[in-house]
Design a protein around this nucleic acid. Structure first.
Lengths: 243, 243
DNA sequence: ATTGACTGATTGTCAGACAATCTGTGGGTC
DNA sequence: GACCCACAGATTGTCTGACAATCAGTCAAT
């Protein structure tokens, strides 16, 4: 419709996506900034509001923009709940195996742990200790709380590694595994065993021994994977019986 | 957290997204299947066509469906060009450093290479050999072709590792790095050096020695990272002079 | 200063319209 | 029969206009 009428298949909403991405990547729009209103964008860019809305929806899914009733904003944090869900759906659809996901998590978590050792300060250890204690004090019934603390523990550790990209990939992997686990009830044994392993890991971190940290995380996750796969097989068997 | 967001705002298009995701994850819609027409979905689900279109746009961004003029289909391949771009934009916006990306790529590529060794068949080696030769026969000028062959080489290797999740993460990382490199002109030296390194890697693969493979990939990437960072610094200096 | 109602702005949603393009059909030609 | 072309129908991509629900800011009353 405009000068941009190329022969290629790019749609108007795609060009809007590109333009907003450009604004973000150049720093013209910064994290937390408010975007113009849909009507405003529509007028500024000379396209219909529906095209603007499709573009905003897309950017929202990609985690670049968050939308509220009051308007659209450039995302302050990189969180991609939609992507996590998409990966999960994809996993189910393609019948990917959990061990693949676990393998990736193990790889990332070990590396992150090892990297974290070098940057570890005393107050970081104190924070991790506090999280450990909090986990141990969580009752068997409050699984949500335990999961939250567990994630916080590893997130703290990840950030110490000083590699945001790796941290983000690890988070996505972790989230997808949690999604899988929503179908599997945790047992009190799971939780208490997890406590013990965190304690061991914390000790290894205190010693600032990268090899020991690597070893500890590897053992923990290998164990966890075995137990998870067993549990899944068991659940599947029960389902087959029920049918 | 995800609980909160769900309760907060549940838009019509989000429910459409969930419904289609459900169809895909349960297998009601399989890879390559055609979705109903937008009008059809609109009627079936009792929502407006614009809401359907926003949902389809979202699913497209997440890599779950592909859209052509003839209709929408459940994605056959796992490819997320939009996500790659989003990660790149995010990287620029947050001024993430390339070394972080490189660190992740190295971690994944080494692991994939090591895993691939165990599944390596003779005809796989032949295919890799062919790719190597093709790379060596690529003229200095045809950079696109060299990049394509390079990617194909590593993709073949990745798939031998037998972990689709890891392969996909590696691909995303690789794509983002390519995006970065689009701003940096390759030199003939880059290309010929890359040829040599692939040859060394191929030899290591032939010996089916995991440790040697790991070592080779690690060296190659460490070297590549150093040169890339140097080149970036150089370009930046030139830009500063120009300004 | 705090509260509460009003107004305007903004989003979320729908319906209708239109051009461009793809699909498939049917006839005509060799 | 095989091939080619024109035509009609279906589908997407886009724009416009409309409406209710909700949010932000204003302004008056307490």
């Amino acid at each position: 419709m405009s000068v941009f009428t190329r022969v290629d298949r790019s749609t108007v909403s795609d060009t809007v996506i590109d333009q907003i991405m450009e604004l973000i990547s150049t720093g013209a729009l910064k994290s937390g900034d408010r975007l113009p209103t849909e009507h405003g964008l529509s007028e500024q860019l000379g396209v219909g509001r529906s095209s603007v809305r499709e573009a905003l929806k897309a950017l929202e899914m990609l985690g670049l923009v968050t939308r509220r009733k009051e308007g659209s904003f450039v995302s302050a944090e990189m969180s991609m709940p939609a992507l996590t869900k998409a990966l999960y759906v994809d996993m189910l659809a393609r019948e990917l195996e959990i061990r693949h996901l676990y393998q990736v998590r193990r790889l990332l978590e070990i590396e992150l742990g090892e990297l974290a050792v070098t940057n570890l300060e005393d107050d970081d250890l104190a924070e991790l200790e506090a999280l450990c204690v909090a986990m141990e004090n969580t009752p068997d019934t409050d699984i949500q709380r335990h999961v939250r603390l567990d994630r916080q523990f590893h997130r703290t550790l990840s950030e110490l590694a000083g590699n945001p990209v790796m941290t983000r990939l690890w988070e996505v992997t972790f989230e997808v595994l949690l999604e899988v686990r929503q179908r599997i009830p945790f047992t009190p044994q799971n939780i208490r065993h997890s406590d013990a392993r965190h304690r061991v890991l914390l000790d290894a971190l205190r010693e600032r021994d990268p090899a020991k940290v690597r070893q500890t995380i590897a053992e923990t996750l290998e164990n966890g994977e075995v137990r998870l796969v067993e549990r899944l097989a068991q659940l599947e068997a029960e389902n087959d019986e029920a049918v």
